[in-house]
């Protein structure tokens, strides 16, 4: 019974991680570097949503509008800071992204202050299914997560943009030869990545009830773990990885020790990487 209950909790947490992980991994597929500033998209998404909701917009619209705003911001950030470094290899990009994470997180704190805000979702009692509690928030989260992942799937499979993104991810040189404008694909990728990140941030805010400037940066490592577990660059891997990390964290908290629940998720990640150095669905480096 407790086991099933833990699975339910784990799935919802996993949904939040999975959505965020998909956003991160999509950008990796095209840009070939792990964006340490990705957590800030989450933070920005949650704060913009909070702000817009505070201005009287219904929560759903506030969330969507916030995601769009962050998507545009993502493109601007990438154009200003990442694009000039694209030809300089991995490390300059990694370090720049850490710098951007510092800047954004602290700009948010400068404006919003350090104290956490409550995310304006009303308090709801759980649904009781045969003794298993299913919190209503979790249903919302799972619903949004599934919708987001379905949207990503449709985007990649059936749209021209998605095909181009996959082509660039598979072989950037070949894609250039084939006449795919990497500029446009890059912009579109950053937009989608930041937008999904913002969505993940809003889901995170629903899960953790509060919104604070360092929320994205803290959550980032878990998202990384999910991305790696699935194999970097693989959106479907990120979905699976996110769910697995969520389950690992809740199972670890229940069956190992609550104070080791993060550590347990990372141990799972490291164990998987020892067996499969490129993650579960990762084929290439």
């Amino acid at each position: 019974m407790i086991f099933i209950q833990t699975l339910v909790f784990g799935l919802a947490l996993g949904g939040v991680i999975a959505v965020s992980a998909v956003g991160l991994t999509l950008a990796y597929g095209v840009t070939r570097f792990i964006n340490f500033a990705f957590g800030e998209f989450l933070t920005l998404g949650a704060f913009f949503c909070l702000m817009l909701a505070g201005m009287g917009l219904p929560l759903v619209w506030a969330g969507l509008l916030a995601a769009l705003i962050v998507g545009v911001l993502g493109v601007l950030l990438a154009r200003a800071f990442y694009d000039p470094l694209m030809s300089r290899g991995l490390l300059p990009l990694l370090v720049t992204s850490v710098g951007i994470a510092f800047v954004v997180q602290n700009l948010v704190r400068m404006i919003a202050g350090s104290n956490p805000f409550r995310f304006p979702l009303p308090l709801m009692r759980p649904i009781d299914i045969a003794g298993i509690f299913v919190p209503r928030e979790q249903l919302i989260i799972l619903g949004v997560a599934l919708a987001a992942m379905l949207a990503v799937h449709l985007l990649l499979r059936f749209t021209m943009l998605g095909k181009k993104m996959r082509a660039v991810a598979d072989d950037p040189a070949l894609a250039r030869v084939a006449g795919i404008s990497s500029r446009r694909v890059l912009d579109a990728t950053w937009f989608v990545s930041a937008l999904i990140g913002a969505l993940g941030g809003i889901l995170l805010a629903i899960t953790q009830i509060t919104v604070a400037p360092q929320m994205g940066w803290h959550f980032l490592l878990v998202v990384f773990a999910a991305v790696l577990l699935g194999g970097i660059g693989s959106p479907y891997g990120a979905m699976i990885g996110g769910l697995l990390i969520g389950l690992a964290m809740e199972l670890g908290a229940t069956y190992i020790a609550a104070n080791y629940s993060y550590a347990f998720a990372f141990v799972v990640l490291i164990a998987v990487l020892i067996l499969r150095p490129r993650g579960l669905l990762g084929g290439r480096g």
Binding site: F9, Q208, A253, Y260, S261
Partner: peptide
């Protein structure tokens, strides 16, 4: 419990 976790459902369940 570890501070900074997004949810504490398992801890609460325990």
């Amino acid at each position: 419990f570890t501070p900074g976790k997004p949810s504490y459902r398992s801890e609460v369940q325990e």
